[in-house]
Amino acid sequence: MWHSHPDTDELFMVVRGELTIQLRDRDVILRPNDVFVVPKGVEHCPRAEGDVHAILVEPKGTIDTGDAGVEMTVQLQELS
């Protein structure tokens, strides 16, 4: 889903598979070992056709769907 994070950048690193980060003006295709940073405030929509293993780096407390506020939003959980 299309969303943005008004206060933080979001870093994507693909470990396995292929991930497309849709931006309003272009698509960025990430394959294993590729890294892309979506700057804060930039609307984007991550999309994958198959299984993808990816690492997302963002500040603690960042909501996965940003400002979209939809049913797909995952509740944050602390890892122990």
Rank of each mutant, 00 (worst) to 15 (best):
A48W: 08
T65S: 14
W2P: 00
T8N: 09
Q77F: 08
V74T: 01
L23D: 05
I55A: 03
V28M: 07
P59N: 00
G69A: 09
R26C: 06
L30T: 14
P46T: 11
D25T: 11
A54H: 01
V74S: 03
A54W: 08
D9K: 05
D7F: 12
H5K: 03
P46G: 07
M72S: 12
S4H: 15
L76V: 04
M1L: 08
A48Q: 14
T62C: 04
S4Y: 12
D34R: 12
V28P: 04
E49L: 11
G41R: 07
H3M: 02
A54M: 07
D51F: 13
I29C: 12
G61F: 13
I55E: 04
H44G: 10
R31H: 12
E49A: 11
K60Q: 08
G41H: 02
K60S: 07
T20L: 08
M72I: 08
T20E: 01
A48V: 14
R31L: 14
R24D: 11
M1N: 06
V28I: 15
V35F: 10
V42C: 04
V70E: 07
E49Q: 12
M1R: 02
E10L: 09
D64H: 06
D51Q: 13
G61P: 02
H44W: 10
L30V: 15
Q22R: 15
T73I: 10
V57S: 07
T73M: 09
I55R: 05
L79G: 06
V15P: 00
L56Y: 04
V70H: 05
D9H: 05
E43N: 02
D64N: 13
M72W: 05
R24E: 14
